[in-house]
Structures are given as C-alpha cells and as structure tokens.
C-alpha cells in the first residue's frame, strides 16, 4: 500500500506536467496554424537551396 503513496502523486504530477505543457502550447500560439505547422517540416532552413 505504501507504493500507492508514491505512485499516485507521481502519476498526478506527470499529468500536471502534461497539462502545463498544453497550456503553454495553446497560450504561445502553437495551435493557431495547425495546417501550416504540418507543412513547415518540409521547409529547408538552408536559404536559397531548393529542397
């Protein structure tokens, strides 16, 4: 039973980290352009060079 005292807070803490990450993502505009973000992966940061 002592395991519970460690595991449950651990599970909730992990969940909270995920929740805060989600809040940060929404607040910083990560969901504002879902289509564009999906396409950006194909962009070549190397300027001038065609992909």
């Amino acid at each position: 039973m002592n395991a519970l005292l460690l595991l449950i807070p651990l599970a909730l803490a992990l969940g909270c980290i995920g929740l805060f990450a989600f809040f940060w993502a929404v607040r910083s505009g990560q969901y504002d352009d879902i289509e564009g973000a999906a396409e950006r992966i194909f962009n070549d940061d190397n300027e001038g060079g065609e992909p």
Partner: peptide, 28 residues
C-alpha cells in the same frame, strides 16, 4: 495553398536584412 508557398514567401522576405521577422499563417 501549401507549405511550399509559405516557404517561398518567408524565405524571400527573410533574405532582406532589414526585415526582422516574417511569418505567414497557412490557415488564415
């Protein structure tokens, strides 16, 4: 209409040293 267009526009503007930032939202 696609990521390629976004890249073209952003790269063209980024090539100009005076431009601090250029970001094109594909959805809007």
């Amino acid at each position: 209409h696609c990521g390629g267009c976004v890249r073209k526009v952003e790269n063209r503007l980024a090539a100009d040293a005076r431009i601090a930032s250029a970001r094109l939202n594909l959805s809007t």
